[in-house]
Amino acid sequence: MDFSQIIPSLPSLWDGMKLTLQLLLLAVAGGIALGTVLALARMSNSALLSGFAKAYVNYFRSIPLLLVITWFYLAVPMILNWITGEFVAVGAFTSCLVAFVMFEAAYYCEIVRAGIQSISKGQINAAYAVGMTYSQAMRLIILPQAFRKMTPLLLQQTIILFQDTSLVYAVGLIDFLNAARARGDIMGQSHEFLIFAGAVYFVISFGASSLVKRLQKRLAV
């Protein structure tokens, strides 16, 4: 084993990591936002809304993420083409981002729903009793408490998502893993670069989940 070429390659690996992190942050933000909307729809009194949200969640939870990534890579440009009537170059990054947001929203939805349900009914009653509307009660009283409770779960899901971003390899996006693969091939040290990439993923995921566990313990007190 010869890891000598890793140090000189760090800049290009860092470029890959930047893409990974960028994709991660946008996907988390979008996924939690859409997931929250889905959770509220799922718990609404309207049979139509809650039925739609339930079907959405079941659908995305029963298919592989890799399938969604591959499909959206092929389909998003076509769909945009139909909508706008002209050819739009979408790029793999955007189609992957859309895939991640829509897919992860299904998982975040279930976390948010459990979080909201863990807040006692008395809290929403108290919010209504002081005259708040549904949206005020959710925004000011229920969601702030729910998000606090589910922070560890949301973070854990985010760590899983961090690892899953490596699947963009399938559509040729140069994320951290793909950068390491490409660079390793050029340098003739593909094994070493792959092991290094694995070690970096490990350190970040393990470090982050240790922090989450500590946070969880603190919140439990």
């Binding site: 690892q163 899953d164 490596s166 893993l177 693969r181 792959l194 694995g198 993923y201 490990f202 995921s205």
Partner: peptide, 12 residues
Amino acid sequence: FRNVPLLVQLFM
């Protein structure tokens, strides 16, 4: 095995 992405493990 939990903290290394599945795809990295597969390549390994």
